[in-house]
Design a protein around this nucleic acid. Structure first.
Length: 443
DNA sequence: GTGTCCCTAAACAAGG
DNA sequence: ACCTTGTTTAGGGACA
């Protein structure tokens, strides 16, 4: 058994970083300093004079100003369809208030009566300002921490200036899948300003990542069910995000089965020993450089469980291959629904090719990803080849195939992506057209 | 509420 | 005895 140095079971105890709890309770109205409040025209100090009553003319004028203000707010409310930063769900959102207001008019009354311009409101406003300041400080700290993390992970924090909008990175990206220039071969894309739980869509905004829309939930959920129908090819998915997955401790949004298959397809002769599969995982994904016991167990589990993985006795021992027929069969079942419909299966694959004989449809998409993978990885295959040129060998060594009954309701090897929320039928078509590869078009 | 899919954990056996 | 590999079972979370 070759030792590929897999024992990276680095004990990265990823402490998520305590959030530094901010106490947002704002009920201490003890502060009455005199910083200017830009909100309204009159500075806080002048209120006593108002309340105490000054000249009737002045009071009258201020009353009319308030009236106008109310009208303005009211019309603004109507225009904006009933939204007010301080009003939501029938509740006044003034800090510490939560007074129930049946409608917006009532809210306005409440706002003007209970939260008028007085000492208390001013103080509360000031407290709120402090809260915001604290949050901004916290945000900058977190951002700094993130920068440090990215630097540590050798991910150039590109354009940190663009940080003010860290959470909206997805929308600008999701539709850019078809942009041809979006994914240059050398993958200069690096995470820009990912939010704390780094996800591809947040971390790689300029990448045509399809990992948008649905958040990668937590680390636990690797995939989403609905993505089975619309999932993208793994390679085209990983490829643009390759650097990201390689360096960031982010769980790739693919099932183990998908990843295992990808690993095998990625090899020169489409077969890998278990150990080599391990190596592929650790090479390709930073996430799998720790918790080895867990994911390795999962890999073995998946290899045994899924019929699409065929154990083959080889010269060098047991290797694992992918039975594309089984794989596509299951996939087409999932996509088209009822069983027995093998329409989605590649014609070339249905010709009774023996399990393990992967027919002549090497993953063309893999080539793109392959090149990218090889570009930055020392891609070693089973035999120690480095395969930058990669001409997929179609030969298969003599094999002994594990006997398996053809059971339809076995476990599957779905391509699960988190990303498919923005996957449109057009994309599906485009993929079929541009790939024209049957081993991939079902993914 | 139920079924399915997937992940995780664990036990066990066989072989080196 | 220990490790690796392979199989199997069980439980739980998420989702349709």
């Amino acid at each position: 058994m070759e030792d590929n140095g897999i024992k990276h079971s680095s004990s990265g105890t990823g402490t998520g970083g305590g959030g530094g709890g901010l106490d947002l309770s704002t009920n201490n109205s003890s502060q009455t300093t005199s910083s200017s409040n830009p909100a309204k025209a009159s500075p806080p100090i002048s209120h006593h004079s108002i309340a105490n009553g000054q000249s009737p003319a002045l009071n009258h004028r201020r009353e009319r100003e308030r009236e106008r203000e109310r009208e303005r707010e009211s019309s603004l409310h109507e225009e904006s369809g009933g939204s007010h930063p301080l009003y939501g769900h029938g509740v006044c959102k003034w800090p510490g208030c939560e007074n129930i207001c049946e409608d917006f008019g009532q809210f306005l009354k409440h706002l003007n009566s209970e939260h008028a311009l007085d000492d208390r409101s001013t103080a509360q406003c000031r407290v709120q300002m402090q809260v915001v300041q604290q949050l901004e400080i916290q945000l900058s700290k977190e951002r700094e921490r993130l920068q440090a993390m990215m630097t540590h992970l050798h991910m150039r924090p590109s354009e940190p200036k663009s940080s003010p909008k860290p959470l909206n990175l997805v929308s600008s990206v999701t539709m850019s899948k078809n942009l041809p220039s979006a994914s240059p071969p050398n993958l200069p894309q690096t995470p820009t300003t990912p939010t704390a739980p780094i996800t591809p869509m947040a971390a790689m905004p300029q990448v045509p990542s399809v990992l948008g829309g649905a958040n990668v939930p937590s680390m636990g959920a690797m995939r989403r069910r609905h993505s089975d129908k619309y999932s993208m090819p793994l390679s085209s998915e990983i490829a643009p995000n390759y650097e990201f997955y390689k360096n960031a401790d982010v769980r790739p949004p693919f099932t183990y089965a998908t990843l295992i298959r990808q690993a095998i397809m990625d090899s020169a002769d489409m077969q890998l020993t278990l150990n080599e599969i391990y190596s592929w995982f650790t090479r390709t994904f930073a996430y799998f450089r720790r918790n080895a016991a867990t994911w390795k167990n999962a890999v073995r589990h998946n290899l045994s469980l899924h019929k699409c993985f065929v154990r083959v006795e080889n010269v060098k021992g047991a290797v694992w291959t992918v039975d594309e027929v089984e794989y596509q069969k299951r996939r087409s079942q999932k996509i088209t629904g009822p069983p027995g419909l093998l329409g989605g299966s590649p014609p070339g694959l249905l010709g009774g090719s023996p399990p393990g004989a992967l027919s002549g449809s090497p993953p063309t998409l893999l080539q793109s990803s392959h090149e990218e993978l090889n570009g930055s990885l020392d891609h070693r295959d089973t035999n120690g080849h480095s395969s930058p040129g990669y001409s997929p060998p179609l030969h298969m060594p003599p094999i002994h195939v594990k006997e398996e009954p053809l059971n339809m309701d076995d476990d599957d090897c779905p391509m699960s992506l988190v990303t498919t929320a923005n996957h449109s039928p057009e994309l599906e078509e485009d993929r079929e057209l541009e790939e024209g590869n049957l081993s991939e078009d079902l993914e």
